[in-house]
Design a protein around this nucleic acid. Structure first.
Lengths: 158, 158
DNA sequence: GTAATCCCTACTAAAAAAGTCGGGATTAAG
DNA sequence: CTTAATCCCGACTTTTTTAGTAGGGATTAC
């Protein structure tokens, strides 16, 4: 059970925008390059994030994308749910009436899925993009600029 | 990000075996019927659980499957990992050297995936099949036998 | 005017998920 | 010893999802 590339790339792109927060719109091409993602694919993902109000865009030359609010006000959960849909281990705990189990009231499996769902959501909602930036600044200072930047060329990336 | 049917059906089948623990081998056909699962498909899943030592089987007439140890000694995590593989949100935190991120030492995304992974594993390892049985016995007594058993006919099941 | 951007829809190839199918081996019971 | 109930095993198929690609239109700074 691995997240799809949508969620994973989306978090990486959002993190990149968080690093540049306050510097005006960042062209998608530069985000894609720094995170080693295909730009037409990333474009699709940004469209979703924009529709969900997480990023805003400026068209035309010198345009680009930026987070629509401060990185401390956007959680990793916001990004993941936007791109992956609700994060739950089973349909019956999606809070969608139609998908509810017919034996909901005495279904112990459901109780299990709820616990897993809540645990996932608790973690991802408790971590903001700013937290990631803080982690980065704490850790990355021990590495050289080349070490930090040559990852654009690599294949094995989180 | 929803678990596949493998993990979900597997947990339901294991729970069923936990309910019948101590009563000798239970034919797969009966498990499949009570949980409304296709038997050839469930058969595949049981083969995996058997290879992982979670259930044991008795061949021939009057044969069937049973849990290979007490339900309190089998966690939901054991079942899920057996059928789904390791539960992690990204490859780089699977503990597989090959899949490790090349910037592992200063990768903040990785830190995030680790937190999600650990949170999921903590929950599923802390819940045993016996816990589910206990939940069931506590809850199900408020429902009639028909209410509990007619779920075999339904489509919407956890 | 032009180049750099975002915007949108449609298409496609590859992989994974979810089963199905057919037959072989084993064993309890009559 | 025969039969029916089981588990066992590998191959196959269908459907859905994933992970992109492609191509062109609209907007805007310079």
């Amino acid at each position: 059970m691995i997240l799809s590339t949508r969620g994973r790339y989306g978090v990486r792109a959002a993190f990149e925008l968080a690093l540049q927060y306050g510097k005006g719109p960042i062209p998608l091409k530069s985000v894609a390059e720094r995170q080693n993602l295909s730009d037409p694919y990333l474009e699709q993902l940004m469209a979703v994030l924009r529709k969900d109000g997480l990023v805003s865009s400026v068209r035309g030359a010198q345009g680009g994308y930026m987070l629509s609010r401060h990185p401390s006000k956007i959680s990793v959960g916001d990004i993941l749910r936007s791109l992956e849909g609700p994060l739950a281990p089973a349909e019956c705990v999606l809070d969608d009436q139609d998908k509810e189990c017919i034996k909901a009231d005495y279904c112990v499996t459901r109780i299990l899925w709820e616990k897993i769902r809540d645990s996932i959501n608790n973690v991802i909602d408790s971590i903001s993009l700013q937290d990631m930036v803080d982690d980065y600044e704490r850790i990355a200072k021990d590495f050289t600029k080349e070490e930090r930047e040559n990852h654009g060329k690599a294949k094995n990336l989180c």
